[in-house]
Design a protein around this nucleic acid. Structure first.
Lengths: 190, 190
DNA sequence: CGTCGAGTATACAGATCGGTTTAGTATGGA
DNA sequence: TCCATACTAAACCGATCTGTATACTCGACG
């Protein structure tokens, strides 16, 4: 990726996330990147493709942010909680307005849009991750617990983005810890 | 509200929800409503105001949908579960693409936009409702349990809208029931 | 009978949209 | 030296955007 392309992607990412995809025009992106529209179209071809690369880049950076924290956790419980810790730090630093995938989904109705598969894939990856992390703890009910953790996690991202109440991700982490403790205990419902 | 205004609001609500607010122009709304643009602007004044009335109307209809189900439940537990049941039926009938408030929020960056207060008010209303419903059960920890239920509920709406896994609202209801059962039990955490 | 509100039809305005085109500059490697 | 790549500058395209203006019809109501 050329330096100009990197600046375009940075500007597009910032503007798309803060103002919404349809609300941001390519002229503004080019201007903010200090680049002409010709360069933008030479590198990305279309606004649609730029949207796809924006989402792919954000997902990639999130996974790179999460990976070392997962690797640093020794226990399954610790790894699940590391996901919530990482989400808290990530949202505080990069996502005041909630999940970029969810927000982008709100603006894209066409399921054949190339961003659709990316958005769905990202959520499936998170669900699979959480489910796989709890499988050693609760082999029989890993799917159910994974889904519950997913709901709490997604709910916390929304609550954070809409400022429903402060500390949503901390609260989510607490509840996740309780669920994990209850799951480890044999006589528990789930 | 005149018949033409009602048709405009119906068309706007359908199109805004299905395609996104910025993706739908007033010309299309007027055409779908079988109305001229002049009539639309005579009744609503601006697209922004139409957006506000779209969200207000949807919120009003949701509350009207929920109210009798709450009234029909005798116990606090039953009323909380009635919220999840109502959400499941409502989303199946009206919200294949998730919460209209969350989706609208993704498209509105300006906190001074009149829709902002409406969106925030709707979420605060839901949080207060859930918290007040569990207060008789757990007077000391109602705020915490209300927030947890809110996270699960919002997460389920997102999971439903993004098709993360099927039956998200049923799963949310199950988990809510477990939380309520655990909360009623004295020796429990939370 | 007269008036007023609600509506249609249509043209228009100015801005912005995504995207293209033409022309030219600077750089670095074969 | 030659040539491809990366870029700037700026004009241009047709379409669409929100919003307005003009002129008219129709029915209800006093």
């Amino acid at each position: 990726m050329t330096p100009a392309a990197r600046r375009v992607l940075e500007a597009a990412g910032r503007l798309f996330y803060e103002r919404g995809i349809h609300a941001v025009g390519v002229d503004l992106i080019a201007a903010e990147a200090g680049v002409t529209k010709k360069t933008l179209y030479d590198r990305f071809g279309s606004k649609e493709q730029l949207v796809v690369e924006y989402l792919a880049d954000r997902d990639e950076r999130w996974r790179a942010f999460l990976a070392p924290r997962l690797a640093a956790s020794a226990s399954p419980q610790g790894r699940v909680l590391a996901v919530f810790d990482a989400s808290r730090d990530w949202t505080n630093a990069n996502s005041p307005r909630g999940c970029s995938m969810v927000n982008a989904h709100a603006e894209i109705d066409d399921p054949s849009h190339p961003a659709y598969a990316l958005i769905n894939g990202q959520k499936q990856w998170m669900l699979t991750l959480l489910t796989d992390l709890v499988r050693p703890l609760v082999p029989a009910t890993a799917d159910s617990l994974g889904r519950t953790l997913m709901l709490i996690h997604e709910g916390a991202l929304v609550a954070h983005g809409l400022r429903i109440f402060p500390g949503a991700l901390d609260h989510a982490r607490e509840q996740a810890a309780i669920l994990l403790a209850g799951a480890a205990d044999p006589g528990s419902a789930n």
